[in-house]
Design a protein around this nucleic acid. Sequence first.
DNA 1: TTGTATGCGTTATCAG
DNA 2: CTGATAACGCATACAA
Lengths: 339, 339
Amino acid sequence: MSSTIRDVAIKAGVSRSTVSKALNNSGVVSEETKCRVKQAADALGYQPNARARNFATRATYQIAFLADFPFDAAFVNPHLFEIMRGVQHTLDKKGYAMVMKHQDDKQSISFVEQAWLQHMVDGFVFHMSVMSKRLSALISKENIPHIVIGKPNFNNRLCWIDTDNCLSGELAARHLLEQGYTDFAYIGGRAEDMISWRRLHGVRQSLQENGLNLPHDRVLQSQSTLADGARAMKKLMRMNPRPQAVICANNPIALGLMQALQAKGIHVPEDMALITFDTYPFSMFTEPPMTVVDINMYDMGQEAGRLVLQKLKHPATQIQTYITIPTLVCRGTTASLRK
Amino acid sequence: MSSTIRDVAIKAGVSRSTVSKALNNSGVVSEETKCRVKQAADALGYQPNARARNFATRATYQIAFLADFPFDAAFVNPHLFEIMRGVQHTLDKKGYAMVMKHQDDKQSISFVEQAWLQHMVDGFVFHMSVMSKRLSALISKENIPHIVIGKPNFNNRLCWIDTDNCLSGELAARHLLEQGYTDFAYIGGRAEDMISWRRLHGVRQSLQENGLNLPHDRVLQSQSTLADGARAMKKLMRMNPRPQAVICANNPIALGLMQALQAKGIHVPEDMALITFDTYPFSMFTEPPMTVVDINMYDMGQEAGRLVLQKLKHPATQIQTYITIPTLVCRGTTASLRK
DNA sequence: TTGTATGCGTTATCAG
DNA sequence: CTGATAACGCATACAA
């Protein structure tokens, strides 16, 4: 069997409580005995029992990460993985572990209640995919330390953190303006794709600030497939004047459009510039590689980790909102018109 | 404060040990008192304290999942995510939680030692990316319940599970043969890409079984980029006779090749068939969608979860090896020549 | 079938 | 600064 604090105490000739204090670097113990205790602990290869420690300190040093992980999650929602990596990294640095748990939004309420009341974890990181009004109510009622990834679409007192898709749209438009483009088109996703709408909103804001605007006939909708990108190309060709630059709501649209343009002998970016959002899955593989507005989800994960630990320490901290900053990755599908 | 087993005991008018037995459905307690205890527990909203339970039972009901999660892991190694999902699912069903932990192969030894000796988890799932001889030695010495994802490339007594890339290659070739193709080419990855070599090996085996073979000049190497696929196209065109079907070691090569072929006016699959491995990232987006040999990593994750729990129960179980079965997804880039 | 007593290994309180 | 002692809440061997 492995040795306990008791063995160390005997070996060092002190009491168990002194050992505990010494090894936890409590200030109230003399340097001399502290040293003696540590030597004894080393000699015995003493390792504190985490289960006993959790029991005594009434903490698990663990945070649950809850999400509705879809089939083929790495492709359906690659951001989720980066967020988790970020969360795990921060928690790890602070001595906490991250427990990954799949839940759908229905099970999640009963699971959270049980996990919390049974003291299985100290706090939660919730992905929006498991959030609901009822869960929100439970969290408030029980005062559960938490952070939500994604802004809840209902009134709440939750702590949440989200990316700013509107700002992403602004950045995309601003980049094009800086390069000297003035005449744009936007190819969006489905009608219910809120991210696409927010990005469009940001684009419009940027244009307005510069005294420009985006007429309705320059905004196309699509189903976000490669084929939709190709279809959009035909519509773009009919526009008069033809737009100088196209903002695509996502990668598949952009790739489909680009392939169709090139098949027609239209060069990117010389004849028509192109910008989209997110690095993956295609943007870097194309020829030329795409200019994109990217979001560092790892960063957001780290921030989420920090926030949940903060709630742990100061449960009364005010409702938090935090917005991560998207960044522009300028590659080959946009070029300056000013040289 | 929440109520404890003691409160339930008082309320039900029995001893604490009886409550424990009753709630854990021990057979030795009468149905009547069992019922009474459960009513009392419900009335009080009693929830057992997991920390105390872990302490008393000397278990954490947690398994650590260790891997060297790369930057942009969802894209660099999407399989990892599916494996984790599978592991988590199995563990969850059995009342275990999965702790995700990033480690590189150097840190991992000291981390595992500490986590194990401090009783932080009951067992480990190791991805090959964190495995090393020294870690292997530690695991054997301490008799740590574990399963390794991926066959270690050194002598060992570890429990591991891996996919059979050779079998994947066989399946790809067999499918082409069944469709009536007899003249193949193979476009592989880099010289150090073992997966590509194993797949090629499987292809050759399949051909030999059918009295065919793959001459060396029909095997091309590449860097696994889209551009490499396009370059390969030119070499294929120079071959005489021109191969009927091309097996691409991975998605990027296949997409690059297909685009180049189509740009030349060569139709897939009519003029040249094409098969590759893995569904993602491109195979379903192309026109026509690609026929691929896919591997269900979620399955393997589930199996890994099962195995580590088995080791937990029966630490003496023999060294395990398990091979998951790849499956053929027949889509549009191959067609029967026999009709 | 039920109850008693004890162990699990730490941390925390409080008196010295 | 140190030590005795009491939690922490549950499970379990053993006695009744």
